[in-house]
């Protein structure tokens, strides 16, 4: 009873002072809902994930089933919603399966690389001194290496399975997160409450986990979305260049690669534009909505927002 009364009182006080009401996560959620494009992004992405991960369960055609009665069938033809390719693969089904791979590679590699970046950034910022200097020089070096050619070579070195593509994208995806987190940690380390817990004899790991980590989490979430859009684009570029996911397993990138042979038209003179259009359009839509989502999250998670609104 006393507790809820106190809550009421706090709410009242906040209302009078004109500040938004609610817990931190409620406020973040409210702010996020105000961002129309970000809501659109979230809805589209959830739809895409459901579509690609559960869609294949509801269709009988597999990604490598061939329908020889319908070769180069245009979109909206019978049985083939988005048409077929040169050996009668159903484009719609392959887009579902391909999306599974593309999204999986993107999500796993961006999350893993962000976590690696977070850990290195925390260590570098908190330890400071020679370790910080060494790690930051290493980040400088990694950032000066031309990324895309190196990805090409790495995917040759590691081979081209799903796992190795994830590894390749992770190895070169953590540096920006590290820089950001390290910068924040450096300033947080000097803050009064960290000083206070140091003087109280709190051990260093606990200080990092309890006092520094929660403060860098918002910015890390935003960076994860940026990394995600980047990872999806890189995977599709690699697969497009023939070094990523290998056919017959489809990914949005290698479907585009497959369509390259018919870009000038088939031997019968038709132009199967749908082979090129749909996979690329899905990459575009996915990345676009990830970016919308990231923008909304940045707005919502910005710690300055309470005083501004």
């Amino acid at each position: 009873m006393a507790f809820s009364l106190k809550r009421k009182y706090d709410d009242l006080e906040q209302e009078i002072s004109g500040l938004p009401v609610g817990s931190y996560s409620q406020l973040v959620f409210k702010k996020f809902l105000k961002h129309k494009l970000a809501c659109l992004g979230a809805v589209v992405l959830i739809t895409l994930i459901i579509f690609t991960f559960f869609g294949p369960l509801f269709v009988e055609t597999a990604y490598d089933d061939m329908d020889f009665s319908a070769i180069f069938a245009p979109p909206l033809s019978e049985n083939h919603f988005l048409g077929t390719d040169e050996i009668g693969h159903d484009v719609f089904v392959r887009i579902m399966y391909g999306g599974r791979i593309s999204l999986l590679v993107g999500i796993v590699s961006s999350v893993v690389s962000t976590i690696i970046g977070l850990i290195i950034g925390l260590i570098s910022g908190f330890l400071g001194g020679i370790w910080d200097e060494l790690l930051m020089r290493f980040v400088d070096v990694m950032l000066s290496i031309p990324l895309f050619p190196v990805l090409l070579i790495l995917s040759l070195v590691f081979g081209s399975g799903v796992f190795s593509i994830i590894m390749v994208l992770t190895v070169f995806g953590w540096m920006r997160v590290t820089r950001l987190v390290r910068g924040m940690t450096l300033s947080l380390r000097e803050s009064e409450y960290v000083m206070a817990s140091k003087t109280m004899g709190q051990n260093q790991v606990m200080i990092i986990l309890k006092h520094i980590l929660p403060n860098v989490i918002p910015i890390v979430i935003v960076t994860t979305t940026l990394n995600l859009s980047y990872a999806i684009l890189s995977e599709s570029s690699l697969s497009y260049l023939g070094l990523g996911i290998q056919p017959p397993m489809p990914s949005w990138g290698n479907m585009l690669q497959g369509s390259m042979s018919y870009i000038l038209g088939t031997s019968t003179g038709h132009n199967p534009w749908w082979l090129t259009f749909f996979p690329g359009f899905l990459i575009f839509i996915t990345v676009l909505n990830v970016n919308f989502l990231g923008d909304g999250l940045r707005d919502a998670l910005d710690p300055k927002f309470v005083s501004e609104s």
Binding site: S229, S237, L256, I263, T276, P279, F284, V287, L288
Partner: peptide, 16 residues
């Protein structure tokens, strides 16, 4: 946003 999200190779292919 559109420009940032466009995969360059797809954009190139569609232009072709």
């Amino acid at each position: 946003f559109v420009g940032i999200s466009l995969p360059s190779f797809w954009f190139a292919l569609m232009a072709i």
